[in-house]
Amino acid sequence: MQIFVKTLTGKTITLEVEPSDTIENVKAKIQDKEGIPPDQQRSIFAGKQLEDGRTLSDYNIQKESTLHLVLR
């Protein structure tokens, strides 16, 4: 499925993911596309910070959902 990741600069990245993917996985995909190390990424969805060990389905993130990426 496709999800979108919006950065603070307003750029939107499209990722191909599975509901079973962990947040860690997703951060690795963002690193592949953007070169941002996962330890600098904070992902926010529906106002909640997403934890690395959880999966997209844990957070009820579905296709075409938009995550927000904040850098630390």
Rank of each mutant, 00 (worst) to 15 (best):
Y59V: 01
R54E: 03
E18D: 13
S43D: 07
V17M: 03
S20G: 10
G47F: 06
Q41D: 06
P19K: 07
E51I: 10
Q31C: 11
K27P: 01
V26L: 13
I44M: 12
M1K: 02
L67I: 14
L69G: 01
V17P: 00
D21P: 00
P38T: 14
A28S: 11
G35N: 07
L15M: 04
N25Y: 12
T9P: 02
I30L: 08
K27S: 05
L15Y: 01
M1L: 06
E51W: 05
T22D: 03
E51S: 06
I13W: 09
K6D: 02
Q41I: 15
I13H: 04
V5Q: 00
I13D: 00
K27A: 07
P38F: 15
K33H: 11
I23G: 00
L67Q: 00
T7V: 10
G47Q: 05
M1D: 02
L8I: 12
I44F: 15
G35S: 06
D32W: 09
G47D: 08
T22M: 05
L50I: 04
Q31D: 06
D32Q: 14
P37N: 09
I13F: 14
D21K: 00
Q31E: 10
M1I: 11
S65D: 14
L8P: 14
Q2E: 08
V17S: 01
D39T: 10
A46W: 14
K48C: 10
D52Y: 05
V5T: 00
M1A: 02
N60A: 08
V5R: 00
K33E: 08
V17Y: 03
I13K: 00
P37Q: 09
L15K: 00
H68L: 15
L69D: 00
I30Q: 00
L56C: 02
G10R: 04
I3T: 00
L69C: 04
D39N: 11
A46I: 07
E34D: 10
V70Q: 08
H68K: 07
P19W: 06
Q49I: 15
L15F: 04
K29M: 13
R72L: 13
T7I: 14
D58N: 04
I44A: 03
I3L: 06
R54Y: 12
K33C: 07
F4C: 03
Q2V: 15
F4R: 05
I3D: 00
G47M: 05
P19E: 07
Q2L: 14
R72C: 09
V26M: 06
E34K: 05
R42M: 15
L15I: 12
Q40S: 09
Q62V: 12
S57V: 07
G35Q: 06
E24G: 13
P19I: 08
D32A: 13
S57Q: 12
K48P: 04
S43T: 15
N60M: 07
D39C: 12
L71F: 09
V70A: 08
D52I: 05
E18H: 14
A46S: 08
I23W: 11
P19Y: 07
D58K: 00
S57E: 11
K63L: 05
N60T: 04
Y59A: 03
H68C: 09
